[in-house]
């Protein structure tokens, strides 16, 4: 397979000591095995995520993503921009579309960027890592790299919101996307096509500001995984992962449940299935240990 080179936008939560640092570690491992080279966008900044709008308004928020795209175009010229975080991808792609559609906004963004000595052109393609997997590598390509099939594991594919809407993955439905289930099958585990909460919102940033309202939704996401006999949940989104994993103690306290459901990334599954160590798969980053994956990794 020819080497794929991508201009990589890792995002704030992937940094060392941040909530999805485990995502970055496993995504890097996965990319090594798939011969994907990640060229980090030098000096990238926060995209504003889905909550920055309230403080930033429109142009300042769009300028954040325009700066990242401009830096990518300058330093990683000709490469597609790829993000692993749903909000990073969404914000970047949204900014690109808005600046493309609105000529005045394009000019204004460039006026702002010139203060930092940058110029936005908006020609680079903006993709999510999952698109690279589905469209460039393919499910068969993933399967061909599997050394330790995740046999006997039943995994609920929780796609969440922002990897799925409003852009989503080409050819997939917003209401019942199948690609995550296909990835689960490709690494040798059993998917759960009837997992009805696969695109349910976890509350996103409102998990901080409206914890009760969000945890009520998270409860439903976990409960449905149990009802479907899942051993664990897999997701492509860092905020989904954190929200669904780390509040289980709080939910147990509020609702008298006994949840202890591991929530991992697709890159965790693939790293283990590709024969890499528990450390390379960042299994040590689980708040709720994924014991069954640890067992397979140590074999």
């Amino acid at each position: 397979m020819a080497k794929i080179e991508l201009s990589f936008y890792p995002g704030c939560s992937s940094q060392k000591g941040a909530t999805s640092s485990n995502y970055l570690v496993s995504a890097q491992t996965m990319c090594e095995e798939l011969d994907i080279q990640l060229n980090e966008i030098p000096d990238w900044n926060c995209c504003g995520a889905s909550i920055g709008y309230g403080g930033g308004g429109e142009l300042p928020r769009l300028a954040l993503s325009a700066r990242n795209i401009a830096l990518s175009e300058e330093h990683n010229s000709g490469q597609e921009i790829v993000a692993t975080c749903a909000a990073c991808w969404l914000s970047t792609r949204e900014a690109k579309e808005r600046l493309h559609e609105d000529e005045q906004m394009f000019k204004d963004a460039n006026a702002a960027l010139s203060e930092a000595g940058l110029k936005y052109q908006g020609e680079a393609n903006v993709r999510h890592m999952v698109e690279v997997l589905v469209e460039d590598i393919g499910f068969d390509g993933i399967k061909s790299k599997v050394k330790k099939p995740l046999e006997g594991l039943k995994i609920a594919g929780y796609v969440g919101c922002q990897t799925n809407r409003p852009f989503g993955i080409a050819g997939e439905s917003f209401e019942n996307p199948k690609y995550l289930d296909n990835i689960v099958e490709a690494v040798g585990a059993d998917s759960i096509p009837t997992y009805e909460k696969k695109v349910q919102c976890c509350g996103g940033a409102l998990a901080f500001s409206e914890p009760e309202k969000s945890q009520e939704m998270i409860k439903g996401i976990i409960e449905a995984a149990y009802d479907n006999g899942a051993d664990m949940i897999v997701t492509p989104c860092p905020l989904c992962q954190a929200n669904v994993e780390i509040y289980q103690d709080n939910i147990n306290e509020t609702y008298g449940t006994k949840f202890n459901m591991p929530v991992v990334y697709y890159s965790t599954l693939m790293s283990v299935a590709f024969g890499r160590s528990a450390k390379d798969a960042a299994l040590d980053g689980q708040v709720i240990p994924a014991k069954k994956l640890e067992e397979i990794a140590s074999k």
């Binding site: 889905s50 909550i51 919101c161 922002q162 809407r165 409003p166 989503g168 917003f174 919102c201 509350g203 996103g204 940033a205 409102l206 969000s214």
Partner: peptide, 8 residues
């Protein structure tokens, strides 16, 4: 929550 269900 910025889930984009309404847009979709």
């Amino acid at each position: 929550t910025s889930c984009y269900n309404c847009i979709a």
